[in-house]
Amino acid sequence: MTRVAVLAGGRSPEREVSLRSGHRVASALRTRGHDVVLIDPSDAPFVETLSAASVSVCFIALRGKEGEDGTVQRLLELLELPYTGTRPGPCERAFDKVLAKEGLDAAEIPTPPWAAVQVAALRDLGAGPILHRIVGRLGLPLVVKPSRAGSAMGLSFIEREADLPNAVMKALSFSDAAIVERRVDGTEVAAGIVGEEPLPLVEVVAKDGIFDYAARYTAGSTEYFAPARLEPESAEACRREATRAFLTPGLRDVARMDLMVDGEGRPWVVAVNASPGMTDTSLLPMAARAAGMGFEELCERILDLALERA
């Protein structure tokens, strides 16, 4: 039996998702016989509470800023507490989509062509009038998303150039930079990795066509296929690129890569999540189940990976 702190909650807009994940993880680990305490970092004073809890390992079920961007991880390094998941630097580079896209490009991992718009460039450097050049370069339709936010928050799909300013403004409500990306039409799949083992791909079919926040976390609004209904070569290519997207930036223990498979069966990595959701509608647990790994076993596996480092 290990005394475990499950960290969940936090102050990010994804707090609810994190809490749902955290409660589920805590209950799974308890069933497995661990002594579990659930700690919300937004309940001050976090460091004091965590120290007083005398745990030997932390399971990170946080999402969004602070929990997913390396802040909490850095703090745990300082406290010399082992934790599940990726180290601070790679966390930061995965969470920030500008850095993540640059990393993917540098490693020649296929990711849709993109551009970034920073708030400072608009406010201080007069970038507004050249915004249309993005459309000239990337074409239409486009996806616009905040660089530092998850769960499809602040995301827009645009078909017309005229809609770009509003979409950028929406994304910038969540972050100080927006990513504008060419929209790849095709099959949406999630590739989970635990340890270094790729899990079966999960195919996502949102009933109204868009896998947004509501579609993600409302049971019944999205159809899932695990394993994904892809040609074997496409599925293999997805696993290969997802594994590269996991290893190249130095992710650890667990991650979920989101990909689009285009009409010709080619995969495009569109997102890298170092702290994937663990709710009852989340994709990673679904992928694990398709591999014959139940939720409790999945949590235990992730915890073991952290304990091996203790």
């Binding site: 608009l122 406010r123 007069g126 507004g128 009038p129 300013p165 950028v168 403004m169 910038l172 409500s173």
Partner: peptide
């Protein structure tokens, strides 16, 4: 007021 400034910069 920050948003307004951003809007003006976006609308050229």
């Amino acid at each position: 007021s920050d948003e307004e400034e951003l809007y003006r910069s976006l609308s050229g």
